[in-house]
């Protein structure tokens, strides 16, 4: 099953009426490199006007720009990164990141890796892995540009065992996903339900493997830019039922995750996750998980 009507119908069943959107361009200030107000002033001199994103501490919309925001001196100096506003949310959901051991499992091209490092103020090690060596060149450039110093990058398939055996305080699972139409205008003609199910299987494999590396009291943040419930709520329900995980409350932009998907009732804690339908941002899903505390 595929096609625009097929997916639109699914979104309607999840409670959202399809509308074509064009997400606003957003940047994230690297706070360890420069203060918000100083960068805003410098960008204004360069001909870039910005507006604070209300739900992000270091995020700004690009209102207008006489130059490409990806080619200013400030960008090349790593004072900010170009990052969709919704994609800036996952890294901010971890508690107390400083000096923690962090694993960014599917790290390339590295926007969230740099953000994690920035939030940690370059303290505590981050292991950044990705299965694609080619994509790690982009990640490495990103790290050098932003003067990141606490990240070690490895070519690694996160569905396979990690060597050396470490346990991590924080694990980011920003998993490969089907994406969404807001960031890909040909999305409806390229994607099928079969693709979605294949991605959902890979995501479960990543979840299952990463749990084995979660330290006591550790946190996992799971995110996708997919609107398909198989990759979002249904995977979280599966994780709760099969991986001895519980979903933790988060306070961020978005609607509560859908706990009734096409007639299938899910664990009610799914509502603690957040689903962001495309509008100013692209579509997004985010959920925070920890080991179940009641031992059940």
């Amino acid at each position: 099953m595929s096609g625009k009507a097929f997916f639109e119908n699914r979104y309607a069943k999840l409670g959202w009426v399809f509308e074509d959107v064009r997400p606003r361009q957003a940047i994230r200030i690297n706070r360890t490199r420069i203060a918000n107000c100083d960068l805003v002033e410098r960008l204004a001199i360069a001909g870039v006007t910005t507006e604070k994103i209300p739900f992000l501490e270091y995020g700004y919309w690009v209102e207008s720009s006489k130059v490409s925001v990806g080619a200013t001196a400030e960008y090349l100096l790593g004072l900010y990164s170009i990052q969709d506003a919704a994609a800036q949310i996952p890294a901010t959901l971890f508690t107390d990141l400083k000096k923690k051991l962090v694993w960014d499992t599917c790290a390339a091209p590295g926007g969230k890796t740099v953000q994690l490092s920035d939030l940690m103020e370059n303290s505590g090690p981050i292991f950044a892995t990705d299965v694609s060596k080619r994509r790690l060149f982009a990640l490495s450039n990103h790290l050098e540009r932003c003067h990141v110093s606490n990240v070690a990058v490895f070519v690694h398939d996160a569905t396979k065992p990690l060597c050396p055996k470490l346990t991590f305080d924080r694990i980011l699972l920003d998993v490969p996903c089907s994406g969404n139409f807001a960031s890909d205008k040909s999305w409806f003609s390229r994607r099928t339900e079969k693709d979605v199910r294949r991605n959902a299987e890979l995501q479960r494999a990543l979840l299952a493997k990463s749990v084995g590396y979660l330290a006591e009291g550790g946190e996992i943040v799971y995110s996708t830019c997919s609107l398909e419930p198989e990759e979002d709520e249904l995977n979280m329900d599966w994780a709760v039922r099969h991986l001895n995980l519980e979903i933790q409350e988060i306070d961020c932009k978005g609607e509560p995750g859908v706990s009734n998907v096409f007639g299938q009732r899910l664990d009610t804690s799914i509502e603690n996750s957040r689903r962001i339908w495309p509008a100013e941002t692209q579509g997004f899903f985010v959920c925070k998980l920890g080991r179940r505390r009641d031992g059940s």
């Binding site: 790690l136 490495s140 003067h147 110093s149 990240v151 070690a152 990058v153 490895f154």
Partner: peptide, 9 residues
């Protein structure tokens, strides 16, 4: 060893 990138290049 075995890393692709680490620390400050």
């Amino acid at each position: 060893k075995g890393f692709f990138y680490a620390g400050t290049y």
